[in-house]
Design a protein around this nucleic acid. Structure first.
Lengths: 143, 143
DNA sequence: GGCGATAAAGTCGTGTACGATTTATTTAGT
DNA sequence: ACTAAATAAATCGTACACGACTTTATCGCC
């Protein structure tokens, strides 16, 4: 007996993630950002000058996704990519002034989103923790 | 103050969805299916002969995503796409015998996944309902 | 001090997502 | 009856996501 998609947890998660993208799109469009680009800006705002690998760890993305994404953002003038002198295998990513501006403008976005969910702060925190725990059980971070 | 991605519900949802894809990949690879293709097979197993629009409603995908996806699956011999005679704007999608075989082989996949989550049946059902409610609040179904 | 193993980033090809637009068909209003 | 509006699907362009592979640099160990 095959379950219909609407009965499957995986599909609920999948389609909820797509809906979140859609919900963010109009908020981010005004800034010229896509959702993954917004995550990169947020991660760099929290800690600037991360290497590509560190960013990938934070965002759960491999370099084959991240490198083209970062190149587009570099072309847009939001960040710089500089190879480390100490270890030339690494590339360090830093926000430009325009990138910092964008990060400041984006501060209101998560709140606007949180309100649209109709959930309380503590419900959202619970859901977040459940999802992170599920994610990490499915795919442990490389050590 | 910008939140780090790891503090944001949207990112938890986003990265959990990616982790679910990764968790399904090895199970579906043996069948030659991608995750969205697996959803199509499941939706058709639940109700065969849906139109492209009905499938899109069930899977929350628009025709610009669905049409190429269905064409690839038709080329693989898993389904047929036939224009309706009564209303020639519509295209009806049906599983072939090979598609039904695939659906049968895929029945064990959600269980294998559920076990990997480490959650109970009722915890999974709760999580599913929370996610579907969140999704539908963010993006109501077109009527 | 040289060389195989490891590590970081990048490249390439395939498969979704989705906004914007197009084409073909049906429905509605006068 | 006839055309404007609406509907269903398809097309096109851009941007992820990721498996498989390559390139370049560092590390381990004799």
């Amino acid at each position: 007996m095959t379950l219909a998609p609407s009965d499957m947890v995986c599909f609920a998660l999948h389609s909820a993630a797509l809906a979140v993208h859609s919900a963010y799109a109009p908020l981010l469009d005004r800034l010229g950002l896509t959702y993954p680009q917004y995550l990169v800006i947020s991660a760099l705002k929290a800690q600037d000058g991360q290497t590509v690998g560190q960013l990938g760890g934070a965002l759960r993305l491999d370099t084959n996704t991240l490198t083209p994404l970062l190149k587009r953002m570099e072309a847009a003038g939001w960040l710089t990519r500089q190879r480390e002198t100490a270890d030339e295998r690494q590339v360090r990513v830093s926000l430009t002034e325009a990138g910092h501006d964008l990060a400041r403008q984006a501060t209101t976005v998560p709140q606007a989103f949180a309100e649209r969910t109709g959930l309380t702060q503590s419900e959202l925190a619970d859901l977040r923790d459940i999802l992170l725990a599920l994610r990490d059980r499915l795919k442990p971070t490389k050590t």
